[in-house]
Each structure stands twice: as C-alpha cells, then as structure tokens.
Nucleic acid binder design. Structure first.
Lengths: 280, 280
DNA sequence: CGGTGCTCATTGGCTAGACAATACAGCCAG
DNA sequence: CTGGCTGTATTGTCTAGCCAATGAGCACCG
C-alpha cells in the first residue's frame, strides 16, 4: 500500500501538510506556506502545489482566503439536540458532561424568513401522507449565531390542520408550534428522526455560507399524533463543521426482553420511494 | 447574485452538467461527456473541463473510473438504527413506511477484525471515565455487505470490567455484548448518541473504500448502567452515501410539561475538551 | 488626524502541451 | 472457441507561463 516512491507529487505534498496539521504543528488558524513557497520547496510548479492544497481544502482541513493565503480551518461545534422539543433539560445525569458549554447560546435571532403555502415536495408529501394536490404550510427560517448563518429549518404542516392558527403567520410563536398543535387537537407525541449525510447543494452553500470541504447533515423530523397521524415534517440542514447531534436513550420497559447484538443492527436497504435525492 | 456573464467558465460548465444530473437528464450511472468532448463543446482547454468535472466530483455527484470515463454517482442508503440494540423491531407503527426494504439485509459477514488491549484515545477515555493510564479492550470490526465495506465499528470496554469475559476474545458473541455486560452485573440501560459529520481521513478512505465527495457520519455511543457508570463506548464511522440514521422518539411522561419551541432547541457551544478533532 | 489612492503579495482562472497509466475491444494464433 | 497480445480512448499527473482579482499595508494629501 505504502508505495511511497510512486505516489504522485501533489499527494506527497498534501500528506506532509496534513501531518503537520493533525499533529498540531500547524495550529488551527495558522497560515500555510504560500503556493509559491511550497512549489519552490518541493521543486514543482505552482499548479502542482495548488493541487496539493486543493486536496486539503476538499478534506475540510484548510480554507483559503484570497489573497491573504491558506489557513488551517478551525471548527467549533454546537450541540444540536432534537429531543429538546420535549425535554429542554436532559433527563440523563450523564448528559452533563456533554453540556459544559461556554453558554454563548442566548443570542439566536432565529430569523423566520417566511411562511408559504406550497404543494410540498415529494419527500415531504410522502411523510405527511398528503396527495400530490394537497397543499401544506411551510415555515422557513435560517438561524443565525453571532450574525453567522447556522442552520436552516423548514417546517411543513398540512394546510387542513393548521388553517387559521398562528402557525400560518410569519411571526414568532412564543408558546411554540407544538403547543399550537396541541390546542388544535393534534398533539405531537411521537417523532421519527432521519439523518442523512451528504455534500451541500450550491443553494445550501449560498444560504449557509459554506466553504469547500464542509458536508451537511440533513435532519428530517416527522411528528405524529397519538393515533399515528403525521402532523408536521421538519427538514433541518446542519453544516457539519458547526454541529454535533445528540440523543439520549433509555432501555424500554421489558416486554419480551430480546437483546440484540450490536448497535446499528441489521442494515435494511431503504425503499426507493423514500430514498430521496437518489443520485445527488 | 446571478452574475451570469462573469462566472468562471469551469463553473458554468459545472452548472450545466449539474442541472442535467439533478433533472435526471443524466441518470444515475450514466456516462458524462469525455473531458475532450466537453472542452471542444465549450471552447476551453481540457484543464478547464477537468476543473468543472472536479467540482462535481467533490460535490459527490460524479465518480470517475479511469480510463473509462466519468459517471453519475448512484447512491442507495441503508437504514442504520442505533436503537435496534434494544428494540430489534421498531415500536412506532409509523416506522413501517421507512422499513419497506427490499430486505436484502441478511448477508452481513460482520467481520471482526480483532480485539486489542489499548490505552484508549482521549475521546474514549473521557467518555469511559478512565484515567490516562488505564487500559481498555477494543473490539474492532469492519462490516461488509455484498463484499463491500459498509461501516467500521470500534467498541471500547473498561478492561477492569470485561476481563475474562467473552468480550475479550475475537469470536462472535452470539448472545450479544449487551447480554455479557448484564451477566457481569453492568447492564447497559441508558445511552447517549453523538453524531458528527465531516470529511473522512485518508485512513478512513482506505478502510472503507470511499471515493471523493463522500462525507462520513461519526456515531459515538456511550452506554451507562443504571447508576450512571459508563460501560462501553462505541465509535461507528458511517459513509454518507450508504446510510440513513433513524431514531424514533416518544414524548416522555409528563412531569412538568414544559413545551419548547422548535426542534434543535438552543444550540450550546461544545466544551472544548469534548470537541474532538478540533482542527481536522 | 483622517481619508484616499497606490503598490504588492497572493490566490483564482485559464491556455497549451507532454507523457503516464489503464480498461476494453478487437485481432490473431493455437 | 480460447488465450494472449496489441492498439486505442480516456483519465491522471505535471510543466511553463500568462493575466485578473483583491485585501492589506503604506505613502501621500487635504
């Protein structure tokens, strides 16, 4: 495997730089050698040095700031906890160690970009059990932290359900959308979370101000009433360099006590009709 | 925004191809025009056409197979369900629609690569509450499906806990590791799942046979006993193009009934000591 | 003291061309 | 019909060099 001698030059250069980065010889935020300096040092042209740096950029290790230079990316992730819709405070005491945050939280202008009436995209219609001609209300927002876009959050509700309720108006809902659903007689008591990982679309790159080498997690939440009726479908797009997704679980009350082997269990191939963005 | 006229040539070419892919004019598996054909068509050099294709490769839309050509990537994801360690069958009936799989499951050679005694990496030691000199047992495996590497799975256990148990031997554990822990008087009844998204390391690229433009999800599972003692820490690396992570949740029994606003809740900045791979 | 414009180092974009590596098809000999 | 060889199309790697765009510092001027 380690063919060393025959590895392409740009790989060798990239490897050397990567080692310096992972070993912290080059710290987060530090500047890399300029393309010309790299090229000189290794006796190659600037194009080859550029190719080496390109590798690191696509690995998400390096950002380039023209024309200042290339720099080691610094990431700090914030905790994203889907369960907080029901449990503002974690239930497990163990959770504490993950929450020792520098509580910079607070400021969260949670800018609701708008409310629209739409015929929902397929992936949403299927999850909400809507026919292709039924409309849905979508509340789109982009959340910011310190003025930086942080994630996007599109919540779809069946139009027939939320008609006339505060959900239809682009104002903040102080008591929360869940409370509104409860008052409408459609309390959300169960939810299914799907998390998918991929590179962002150009649109997402633009809306979230992503740089190269940053993947996103797509978190799809479908909420159900007690009798299994879907009442909302939320699609969150979370930049990978800004989030850690956190769940806490407890072993369910013993019914039949069937212990399985390992987490992850048997993989099931996803039904094509639900495997969205099949080729992207 | 639509600067049109001044967008770089390689971007224009990439945009055109991307449109063809997302609109399914170019289906999954279809071959793209050759670099030379693209260059001729747009009146640019091969280098520029190459750059355009490079964009799509890093977006995960295209794979290249030398010297046959470039092709539209096809993805099909399998369901990965951390909760299956306790619930082989989903509890929510709603889950059914996500599980209509072509049940290709079965074959899962679950190849245990080995069992080692190690001083665990920092990220694991912290989660297992081990001092830096204490050792842990790690069971490393790479799971395959249809001969293709599918994900990696490294489970760490405190050495003092599992000494002498079947966990220390590189054979399959028919009853499951959880059962062994229970017999050792350390039943895992709670767990915390962390999911982080990033580009793979070169090592992961190699072990999982990843191609460019495929991010990974890192799933860290920490299991606790009834009295809050950590008994295992599992690190799963899941290629983004092969997995959908699925959770099901129910609203907890009402204690104080505090409804929050939106899923995701307030972001908390992650404590530096737990924000692993800070600069990578 | 403050603003205004210049210079410059550095990255971005692109051309032109050379040679290497390799899967695949097609041909030829047995 | 089979096995091996060869040619070819296509992508991978690299050189050499050009001009454009731009943030930052600096000099100059009001």
């Amino acid at each position: 495997m380690a063919r060393g001698a025959t590895a392409p030059l740009y790989q060798q250069i990239a490897d050397e730089l990567r080692t310096q980065i992972t070993s912290r010889a080059l710290r987060a935020g530090a500047q890399l050698p300029t393309e010309l300096a790299l090229a000189d040092k290794h006796g190659v042209t600037r194009a080859t040095a550029r190719q080496a740096i390109g590798v690191l950029i696509n690995e998400g290790l390096v950002v380039s700031s023209r024309p200042r230079g290339h720099f080691v990316r610094q990431v700090d992730r914030m905790i994203y906890r889907p369960q907080s819709e029901w449990r503002p405070q974690p239930a497990s005491p163990e959770m504490d160690r993950f929450m020792e945050e520098q509580t910079s939280l607070g400021r969260e202008p949670s800018q609701v970009i708008g409310v629209e009436l739409v015929t929902p995209p397929d992936e949403v219609a299927r999850r909400l059990d809507l026919d292709s001609d039924q409309t849905a209300v979508v509340r789109r927002r982009v959340r910011f932290i310190d003025g930086m876009p942080f994630n996007t959050n599109d919540s779809y509700y069946p139009m027939t359900l939320v008609e006339g309720s505060p959900i239809m108006y682009p104002a903040d809902i102080p008591q929360g959308a869940n409370q509104v659903l409860t008052e409408l007689g459609a309390e959300q008591v169960r939810a299914i979370d799907e998390i998918e990982v991929r590179m962002p679309t150009p649109d997402e790159v633009h809306r979230l101000d992503l740089s190269a080498g940053v993947p996103v997690a797509v978190h799809r939440l479908t909420g159900y009433t007690h009798d299994g009726r879907p009442v909302r479908c939320t699609i969150n797009v979370l930049p990978g360099d800004r989030h850690v997704i956190l769940f806490e679980r407890a072993k369910p009350a013993p019914e039949h006590e069937t212990d399985s082997t390992t987490p992850g269990g048997e993989p099931h191939r996803v039904d094509g009709s639900l495997a969205d963005r099949g080729t992207q």
